[in-house]
Each structure stands twice: as C-alpha cells, then as structure tokens.
Write a protein that binds this DNA or RNA. Structure first.
Ligand code: ZN
Ligand code: ZN
Ligand code: ZN
Ligand code: ZN
Lengths: 161, 161
DNA sequence: GGCGGCGGTGATACACTGTAACAAACCCGC
DNA sequence: GCGGGTTTGTTACAGTGTATCACCGCCGCC
C-alpha cells in the first residue's frame, strides 16, 4: 500500500519485498543476484516511479558504475517475475506491492503531486471492460490502465481554494 | 491515392477527416496549415499507428525534408484539437475516428496482428472505474486505457483450431 | 584436474523518442 | 510598409531502449 506519512512508512515494506523476492526466485529455481536485488531495492525505496537511468545513477558509486543496460536487464527479469511493473505513461518502474491473481488486471493510480503510484484492481472494471471488448469483437491479450490525478493524502494536504 | 486497397478501418475516410479538420479549425479561428494537413493525412492513410519519425520519413521527398521536430509540433496541435491520439504503449499516433464528448474516456483496441487501432468508449467502464477510484480515495484528472489483442477481422482470417 | 555449455554481467555502440533554443518566414491588422 | 504574433526550419541535445560481443563464474561431464 502506498503511504505518504513519511519515508519510514514508504520504506517499511522494502525488507519484506526483498525477502519475498528471494523466496520466490528460490522456489522457481531462478537466481536472485546482487544486481537484481539492488535494482529491486532501489525501485522499492524510491517512493515514486523511477526511470531506468535514475536507478543506474542511484546504484552507481565512484569507481563502480552500473550501466543502464544492466538495469534494463534486471528490470526485465523482475517484470517477468511480477516483482516490478512498468508505467507506460511515465517510462518508469515501480515495485509490485499488490500480489496479483493470474490474468488479473491492474489499475495504476499515479499521483501528479507526490509522484507516488498505487495499485488497485476491480472485478467490476474487469467485467465491464470484458463485455465492452466482446461487444466490439476484440479478443484481448493484455491491457494497461493508468490513471493520473491526486492521491488522498495530497488532496487532504492541499484543501480546495 | 490508395484509399480502397484493403478492408481497412478507414471508417470515415481520409478525405472526410481532412474536411472535418479544416472546418473545425476555421470554426475555432486556428490555422490548418499545409504541414498540419499533411501530417494528419499521413496518420489517417497509414491504417496503423505511426511513429513521429515514420511520419517524417513518409512526408519527406528528395530535396524537401520534413524534420521530426516539425512533425511533433503538428502532432501536438492536432492532439490539442482532438484530431489525433497518442498511443502511449506504442509511442505512436492515430487519427481520431470517433468524436468524443468532453471528458469522455477512450479505450484503444490495438491489434497485435494487423497493427490497426480502433477506438471504443463505454459508460459502464467509465462508471465502474470512477467508483473504484472513489473507493481508493483518488481524484482522477486523466486516464489511459489501451488493450492489446486481436481484432475481429484478424481473428476471422486466422481461425485457430 | 580439465573442459564446455550456460546464464549473468560489463562495455561499447547504436537506434529510437522527444525537447530546447534560436533564426527565418509567414500572416494579419494597422 | 510596419510591428507583433504564429508557424516553420535548423541544429543541437536529452531521454529511452536495444544489439552485440567479450568476459566471468558456475555446474555438470569426461
Ligand atoms: Zn502489482
Ligand atoms: Zn500524492
Ligand atoms: Zn478519438
Ligand atoms: Zn487486426
């Protein structure tokens, strides 16, 4: 869940996220390498959607540069495992904090003020979208639904004029 | 030129589209310049979503090159006037063949086989999405909904089993 | 031990997408 | 014709993503 109370709250789930990722990779017989771990950690700690180049810069230290291409490869892996999502409207990436049923759609709620991205899902939206597509004679394989606006915390913080 | 080659989803036809655009610009006191006209025509004739650089190349002839930056400016104008849409998941542009009520959402149906993009809208999807957002305490300003899959024509043409 | 395949990483180069900045051309009313 | 806004040309650059090859570490096999 996306929280705005402060950094501690935002970062609280990072450890859990890493532990979950490690377990999931072991379970699937895949390698949770240091680079993949670092990329996931960087995405999880950021509190907002991160570009691949942002991650590369964040992970680079004097004497040890992480090239964007390596970040892209790690992100591809993490996306295949469902640990990270790509936000098409921002060319940026977020950690998955939701845990999805197979085939379930996701709605990304992107706050234009704080930049945070929350995930939601809705059987109702799924159903009505499915009916609309069927009516149009269209067979879907994949869909993206991204909403921009103001999250509750930011709306409360700046009450209407 | 080539207007009746395929079964293409030129619902309205390129000519109608250009006439509509010209009338709309006159009505709003805006300039429907040759470049803007050419860009809209290129997008409308393509039959599938076009990248800005594709359009630039299509409009360029020996001795008269159209720079991508000019295409981007024309596309910005056409998008402001609601004559063209941008497909975020493809970094590409399509002509608007739908005609939208103000504030109405759009669903883009992107065929992975023929590359064509159709538009749909649904009060039902709008409503259920609005309720889901309200439940999440999120105030939307703009949303994108893009579905990838197979259009009816392509599904019929390749009967699977 | 040596050896070869395999997946992951490093490194460079490149393609694609989009924007900033400034100059020149154009249009339109005065 | 003149002045001011708009449109376009041109160049340069920033941002995003991919291709390619080489190297390394690991594991199974001879
Ligand atoms: Zn998720
Ligand atoms: Zn916010
Ligand atoms: Zn439209
Ligand atoms: Zn199709």
């Amino acid at each position: 869940m996306h929280r705005h109370e402060g950094h501690d709250a935002c970062h609280a789930g990072t450890g859990d996220m890493l532990a979950r990722a490690e377990g999931l990779c072991r379970e699937r017989g895949l390698q949770f390498t240091p680079l993949r771990r670092d990329v996931l950690e960087a995405v999880a700690e950021a509190g907002k959607a991160q570009g691949a180049y942002d991650i590369a810069e964040r992970l680079s230290v004097p004497g040890k540069r992480v090239a964007p291409v390596s970040v892209y490869r790690a992100l591809d892996f993490l996306m295949e495992q469902g640990l990270v999502h790509r936000i098409a409207s921002r060319n940026a990436f977020i950690p998955c904090t939701h845990g999805h049923a197979p085939g379930e759609g996701v709605i990304f709620l992107i706050c234009r003020t704080c930049g945070g991205v929350d995930e939601a899902s809705s059987e109702e939206v799924e159903g009505s979208l499915g009916r609309t597509l069927e009516r149009a004679g269209f067979t879907p394989t994949h869909s993206i639904l991204e909403v921009e606006g103001d999250c509750g915390a930011c709306r409360d913080r700046k009450p209407a004029p």
